[in-house]
């Protein structure tokens, strides 16, 4: 087989060989951890600092738009941030407006991994469940929490729970928004523009570039992106978990992808030049 044939075959390589390579390269560090150091990025450091600056007993709104498909992208960051907030004795209000399954995801994926045992329900944290309506629900919640929701997720009246009895939107010191569905704009429109609430976003990789303008303009006080953000935050709070053990896979898979990107482009360029040369002859 001549060199030209080899190059053409490589360019048209069956994708399944690439898939097997991806599996091997990504799984390798999960079986044999490499311990590659992770540098803390500025947006994650800013998120950490924003939470560190909170006074004890402050109230934080968790925009719990978490869902099963977002487990590894958002889950580790979510867990690490919750651990940090609980450590600082911050009171938490969980509510979702866009992700209907968020309460189920919270029960099965977050609660078993975060120690809520030392917190008293109704005083230290409250789960308000899913409120349908998206931006309208957000706006309604912001204008009057007790009128929008008479009861919490468990049917307890909000006027009887210590944390929510006289709670107003202006009482929140921070909003931590989980963002699998690109809803940060709605949160900023309904919570920050009218009430000036500070926001931290735990977001998908794909939306991070889109949210950078908000970060630069000061509309976001911090941002955690995908598993890498989770790993950085786990290191900041000194509790390595799922993200730290998985982030080596990011290194190996990304290096493979970078090689594929360059090699694929190089191969197509060379084959194009060779076929032009062949036609010229």
């Amino acid at each position: 087989m001549g060199a030209r044939e080899v190059l053409r075959t490589l360019e048209r390589l069956d994708s399944r060989y690439l898939f097997v390579l991806v599996f091997i390269v990504t799984a390798f560090p999960l079986v044999f951890p490499l311990g590659i150091p992770v540098k803390i990025s500025a947006p994650v450091q800013k998120s950490y600092d924003a939470i560190e600056a909170l006074a004890p007993n402050s109230v934080v709104l968790i925009g719990d738009e978490f869902s099963a498909p977002s487990w590894t992208e958002l889950g580790p960051s979510y867990i690490a941030v919750l651990k940090h907030l609980i450590r600082k004795n911050i009171r938490l209000v969980f509510v979702s407006f866009f992700s209907a399954e968020a309460p189920a995801a919270f029960d099965t994926m977050i609660k078993p991994r975060v120690d809520f045992a030392k917190l008293k329900y109704g005083v230290d944290f409250v789960e308000l469940g899913f409120v349908a309506g998206g931006e309208a629900a957000l706006a309604s919640f912001a204008s009057d929490i007790q009128r929008t929701l008479k009861v919490d997720r468990y049917g307890a009246s909000l006027s009887e729970l210590g944390l929510t009895k006289d709670l107003r939107i202006t009482h929140f010191s921070l909003v931590v928004e989980l963002d699998p569905g690109a809803h940060l704009s709605e949160y900023l429109r309904q919570l920050q523009a009218p009430y000036g609430l500070r926001h931290i976003s735990i977001t998908y990789g794909v939306t991070a570039p889109a949210y950078t303008p908000y970060l630069l303009a000061g509309q976001l006080s911090g941002m955690l992106v995908a598993i890498r953000g989770g790993a950085e935050y786990e290191l900041l709070i000194k509790e390595p978990g799922v993200a730290v053990s998985g982030v080596d896979g990011v290194s190996t898979s990304h290096v493979l992808f970078a090689i594929c990107l360059v090699a694929g482009s190089f191969l197509s360029l060379v084959n194009r030049l060779l076929s032009k040369e062949g036609k010229g002859k």
Partner: peptide, 26 residues
């Protein structure tokens, strides 16, 4: 570029559930 990070995060999560949660590695 960031989509690559995001999708590989999910891919790693699935592999972790197989290799770590189920089989027990490492």
């Amino acid at each position: 570029g960031n989509t690559v990070l995001g999708r590989f995060s999910l891919f790693i999560g699935s592999l972790q559930s197989l290799l770590s949660d189920w089989i027990g590695l490492p």
